[in-house]
Design a protein around this nucleic acid. Structure first.
Lengths: 208, 208, 208, 208
DNA sequence: TATGAATGAGCATTCATTCAT
DNA sequence: CATGAATGAATGCTCATTCAT
């Protein structure tokens, strides 16, 4: 009989309940601390906020990346799931892409330091990168493909590259007048087929 | 004859020789370390690389911001001075802007962590921010103005915001397939007057 | 049964045993080091002597003032509590005052650097000052008042000033022939009503 | 022919003039810095204030003690020379002692950190101690002797001990209400023959 | 299983002193 | 003889991680 089965049967396993409660307290606390002090906030701060010992964090989330993934999983999932609806609801695939990028910006920009971590080369964040890539890159690819198929944007834009760029752009911070949404959409606008007005705009900026 | 006069005449500078050599060694070492370990690398590492004591760094560059500014001053100046020539040499102001952005990207992208520092809120970096802003924002403004005047891009794009965005975008790093130049130019392309082909592309994504 | 309850019952305190042992080792080590190297001895030295890491000190005593207070708390308390008994046991209030000053001198003179720190303006020592003032000034005041009421000494001597003076006087050190007790009592003797022999001694030196 | 003689003859030795000028600038600067930052102020601060290199300080004053002695020599001399006059001018030897102590207090109390240094055990300050002791202790002894001979104070008070006590007492600082002059004189008052009113005051405070 | 105490490496920074110029 | 650049040891403090209870 597995622990899970026993749980399902009795429902009286206090330990498990404790653990789950801890896990949730931890996620809440981490989310709060991530916002106030960034995703690289000291472990102790998170533990203190959650009212648990530091080692408890390590038990539940061996690496910081695990914790970050757990904290943002819901939002990442929602982001991933939103794409199909957007494709249906929007006037054009490009509009869907644009709106999805908006959501992505909203997500990244509110997480102090998330963008920085996503750009970090530190291997300790590899699981974090993997999760984001696995979950969001296909979705972004889908949106890009749709827009390409509709002839709205030029083909060939790698979704990972685009998201990475937008991530970096979101790291700009809260400075007054800095509008990550607008800037991200500038990027997406830049993808538009310049052949909208064929021949009129020489690609003067193209690099050799 | 004062020491200063002798210096001016002979160029021997008896006292300063060591100091200048050290200063240069320091700048070289710092540049190298900034690339390998980022601009927030430990002072000790830079000192070790330069073969000097740590205090020597503090003598020449009291704050880290001073050191960073010194290391990049030449390149920033070249960047600032390049704009007028680009305006003359390029087919259109937009092309000049695009090429200048290329140079800016080339500059930022090779400095590990520079983008991050430029985005930091830490007041210790204020002098660094000031220097970059004072030196480059007017130049970027000039290029933007020219492109606006030529009817190539929409008006109203703040140069600081644009540069900040590009800075963040450059923080994307060295990942294979990540092309900051192209992405930055996507941004600039996004600024183009969509009226190039008036009416053809509904601005479905435009923000309120 | 919670850990707290178990503690209350058995006194085993499974968790705190180590911590308490360390705390005590720390206090002992600090006391020893304070004597040999003064109360401003490097944190590392105390940690080494106690056989703990430096951070352990910071855990138990976030500031140096905390550590100093903890080290001397017992002695300060004894000093504070001794006054009432002295007033009862001594022939006169002045004698009680004198004996209390003796104890105060004994306390201060054995703590290398304590006097200096008590005189320091560094705000980091404010809590230390406060503790000493809060605990000892009222006691000294009480003794002074009693002596004044008995007509033994002139009124108006601020206890804080007196203690500060004695503190400084104790900083004289261990030099042979230097007798802080005697000197401090000279001070207290100086407070005596000169009207012991009214009119005989012109107060030529009296300050306005 | 000694260097001094040659100087006297020719008066053209620029080097010597420079050196002397430096020495004086140094003394002035040191005096100023000692007041503002204490006698343990960084060497560089003094050098900067004097407009000389740090090594120049070491040339003129190999140790800090040398510098301190030089800075205060004039005032110490005046203090030493004042005693005879005071003995003549004052109504009684005790009054002279008291007034001299006043001057001593005035001297010590205005030198930030001088008292602390005078109490330091650091052998690097031995020359400083020696100078003060050699110059002032005999003077104080003389004043004490006179007062003893006049029957005003009890015999046996070592002058060095008294001065050390007063020095420590002066370290009390600038705190409002802290009056080192008064406290020092309390000490001297304490020396008075209690037999002014013989038998009236039992030496209740005397320690076994 | 949860705890939180302990760890100790790591960092920025200061300063007295020396030495090449 | 004067300079001031270089030194590098010393210190306070933080934080991620481990481990005994």
């Amino acid at each position: 009989m597995s622990a899970t089965e026993r749980d399902a049967e009795s429902g009286t396993r206090p330990k498990r309940a404790d653990a789950r409660r801890n896990q949730e307290a931890l996620l809440e606390a981490a989310a709060a601390v991530f916002i106030s002090s960034g995703v690289e906030a000291p472990v102790r701060e998170i533990a203190a906020k959650a009212g648990v010992g530091t080692a408890t964090i390590y038990r539940h989330f061996p690496t910081r990346a695990d914790l970050i993934v757990a904290v943002y999983r819901h939002q990442v999932e929602r982001l991933a799931e939103a794409a199909p609806e957007l494709l249906v609801d929007s006037a054009t695939p490009h509009a869907a892409l644009s709106r999805w990028i908006d959501s992505f910006v909203d997500f990244v920009v509110t997480k102090q330091g998330l963008a920085a971590v996503l750009q970090s080369d530190d291997p300790c964040y590899d699981p974090l990168h993997s999760y984001f890539v696995d979950r969001l890159v296909p979705v972004c690819q889908q949106l890009l493909d749709a827009a390409v198929d509709a002839g709205e944007i030029v083909p060939g834009q790698a979704p990972y590259e685009l998201m990475r760029a937008i991530g970096g752009l979101c790291a700009g911070g809260d400075h007054p007048g800095y509008d990550p949404r607008r800037l991200a959409n500038l990027l997406v606008t830049g993808l538009r087929r310049s052949s909208d007005a064929p021949g009129t705009l020489p690609e003067t900026w193209s690099r050799p």
